[in-house]
Design a binder for these strands. Sequence first.
DNA 1: AGAAAAGGTGAAAGCATTTTCATTTTATGC
DNA 2: GCATAAAATGAAAATGCTTTCACCTTTTCT
Lengths: 333, 333
Amino acid sequence: MSSKKPTIYDVSRLAGVSIATVSRVLNTPDKVNPETRQRILEAIDSLQFMPKAEARARALQSTGRIGVITPFFTAPSFVQRLRGIASALGREKYELIIYTVESSAHLQSYLVSLPLTGNLDGLIIVSLAVEAAPMRRLMEAGIETVFIEFPHPDISSVQIDDVVGGRMAAEHLLQKGHTRIAFLGDTDLPEYAMHPVSMRLMGFRQAMQAAGLQIPPEFVRLAPYTHEKALQAAAELLQAPQPPTAIFAATDFQALGVLKAARQMQVKVPEQLAIIGFDDLDMAEYADLTTIRQHLDESGRLAVELLLTRLADPSRPPQHIHLPLQLIQRQTT
Amino acid sequence: MSSKKPTIYDVSRLAGVSIATVSRVLNTPDKVNPETRQRILEAIDSLQFMPKAEARARALQSTGRIGVITPFFTAPSFVQRLRGIASALGREKYELIIYTVESSAHLQSYLVSLPLTGNLDGLIIVSLAVEAAPMRRLMEAGIETVFIEFPHPDISSVQIDDVVGGRMAAEHLLQKGHTRIAFLGDTDLPEYAMHPVSMRLMGFRQAMQAAGLQIPPEFVRLAPYTHEKALQAAAELLQAPQPPTAIFAATDFQALGVLKAARQMQVKVPEQLAIIGFDDLDMAEYADLTTIRQHLDESGRLAVELLLTRLADPSRPPQHIHLPLQLIQRQTT
DNA sequence: AGAAAAGGTGAAAGCATTTTCATTTTATGC
DNA sequence: GCATAAAATGAAAATGCTTTCACCTTTTCT
């Protein structure tokens, strides 16, 4: 019932001595009279007293803590990464602490305080750009760090090549005979986060160029990362006088919006409109969406493994894992 | 060179500010002028200043840690709850620590160690059954606890009434004129976790009974929690000589499998087959699935609020919030 | 322009414990 | 007995940090 944590003062009061004596019982027991000591020990027991700060400091010192800094996870792709991380960390003796970031200032504040007061053994930073100075502090504080989706020469990372992915998607559509291909990306590019979508667009552009094709400017659409907006953008594309015959959506989540638009407009997929996504979310399989798989779960798992390796043996050099991309052909192309 | 460990005072002197400002740079960096902050950070770097965990713990009365114990989150519903929790906790000064549980023993081990070494201020336990003894220990350790989906008189909780939800789903289908209604639930009922699906089935049964209808035994199907298995179970139902005209899937995730089966078998939804799900996951909206919304994000958010309220004022009595369910009518019924 | 709100900062009051130092009590030697 | 060393204890200072409060600047609004 009484949830108040007892302090050394409570003990001293109960035992009828000063706090100094209580402290001595704890630290230098032989310096206090056996009878007094006994009385104080009883008081300690009956109050369930535990010198908290110390216990905490000690616990935090050695106990393994691994932090994950991630953009606030509305996007399913972050969730799937997190799932990979959690599953890899599951049986380890490490605690998993989640820091969600929702603004650049927020990220900065974490980067300032975590190395110093975070008590972390390791840190995984997902899809966020970190500047040189905070990074140096991280390293000096002895926190092993792994980036996901952010390359840095001195820090281990797990990356995918979004440019190649964009190219793969485009080449797949080209190979199916499409020439009028539109691109749908998202606009949610907070300045503090990576924006892989731009890279995918770049790859898409490269492939189109290589095939000698122009992309009409109105075929490159950006919409906020919601189903409705994606749906709306797709609808506008399809209502144009010369609509595209294929759409490359830079994220599966948006591809689903496109699919829904096609359904609503009675546009047959893939006959009248081919759709390809990117990510291979869980839902992509359900929706039979052709997509570029980037194995999100795996990226999280690998990040944890990189971290654990380095924690076990800090002399190991940083590694940079490039996760392969894979075209998953389903029903929408 | 200099042997003494630098303290916050050294930093403040070097940076020409008060110790308060240095402390703020560490704890609430956005509350200090960028230029000042920069100067202080430089001082910190040049002195290799490292705040002492013990002193910090002392000044900081609360440890600022909130744990979440959740079954290992493959299921999207857990993820959405977690999202609610993370978002509610976002700006608070609490750390969010995730403990994923994958077996009964695992859960027990957490319940044993967390009260002692966890250093937690609060704990949210999601969809897990906790016995009396471990719970007592939790309370004695002074860890405020909130349950999601597990009722207990002395502990705050956020619950939904799955029986009512099952009834709502059934009544909706009945009202649409269906009489041959099948039920599809999942079989993943680890002994340590709650199994709301059984409750939903119970509600479903009640409503059918109230309408004077029998449920043929073969119309109650259980399948593992994957798309494929749900799809397969649905296919079997639909291939029966007298197939159901409606299916109530106990989770949206499985409802999507049913939808896919219908699509593959060219069964028209909702004309030939009505489908209703449960949860209202993000995907439900995309799939235009009629479902019972249980507002998963909200349940996480509420749990955090309950916890914070009690942490702020432990004398507040435990609350039990019953989250209302809501029928979301979309295109599949 | 002046008033009100917001932003930034330092002085000082905690926080729970250890440690120093002075004081009281007890034991010891002659 | 009586000084005197030794032992036991408490008051208070110190620890290194956070946080509140009040004050002083800016900015914003009217």
